[in-house]
């Protein structure tokens, strides 16, 4: 049984076809880059996997069961936009995550937040954007999920924040979970990927191990990406 098995997935947004019969199977224990230019359907696909979009045709199985209550408990989703309320502080946000998710490791989240030298009573709205991004990732990675779905976790962050985020992903994921990470800035992250999935015209254009791709093409993932989407 695969961790994620998607067959003939179709999704329309008005007259516009976003996903046009997409097939994708992913196994556990990998960090997977979900790549494609803006508008390729990355966010839509991630929302469907995470159960936030329910209008689609085709089948989406997570750990063998259709997306639903059961899959939500094993998928940890990082949306593109931050979901904290500005008036919240770290302590209250942790409380909320604990109430929502049985697999949330409160202690770990607090430790990681304290490593950032944050005051647990500081209002989240008063923190810098980079800090909010770090905090959000800490929360998402502090769940013991099977599949981490991270939508553009590196969008618009500075290099040191990027390194922090990559390090946090690498150190928190385990062999029996997988990370699906979307980005259109391939260069910054390609060395942490096991596998790259390219979306094109609403389908999977390519699904391959990154080191195999490098050996076969002699190109970096970033160069290859630019070729494909030229």
């Amino acid at each position: 049984m695969s961790l994620l098995e998607i067959k003939n997935l179709e999704h329309r947004y008005g007259n516009h076809t976003v996903l046009a019969g997409l097939n994708l199977t992913l196994e556990e224990g990998e960090i997977i880059g979900l790549l494609g230019p803006n508008g390729a359907g990355k966010t839509t696909l991630m929302k469907i996997i995470s159960g936030l979009i329910q209008t689609y045709d085709g089948s989406v199985l997570v750990n063998g069961a259709p997306v639903g209550i059961g899959s939500k408990s094993i998928i940890s989703y990082l949306p593109e936009q931050t979901y904290f309320r500005k008036s919240e502080n770290i302590r209250s946000a942790i409380g909320m995550f604990r109430d929502f998710y049985a697999d949330f490791d409160e202690k770990k989240a607090m430790e990681m937040a304290m490593d950032l030298n944050l005051d647990s009573k500081q209002k989240i709205g008063a923190m810098s954007k980079g800090m909010q991004e770090k905090l959000q990732l800490i929360f998402v990675m502090s769940r013991k999920a099977k599949l981490y779905v991270l939508d553009e976790p590196l969008g618009g962050v500075d290099p040191s924040t990027r390194d922090y985020i990559l390090h946090t992903i690498l150190s928190q994921y385990t062999e029996n979970s997988s990370v699906l990470l979307s980005t259109h800035l391939v260069h910054d992250v390609e060395q942490i990927f096991d596998r790259a999935v390219f979306l094109k015209n609403g389908r999977v254009f390519l699904n391959e191990q990154v080191d195999i791709l490098r050996a076969e093409t002699g190109m970096s993932l970033d160069q290859y990406f630019r070729e494909v989407y030229r």
């Binding site: 390194d163 390090h167 690498l170 150190s171 062999e175 060395q191 942490i192 990927f193 096991d194 080191d211």
Partner: peptide, 17 residues
């Protein structure tokens, strides 16, 4: 492996390989 992977900034599967 995990420690080396963190040192090199790559994922543990790559280090395992």
């Amino acid at each position: 492996v995990r420690e080396l992977a963190a040192q090199f900034g790559v994922n543990p599967n790559t280090m395992q390989r």
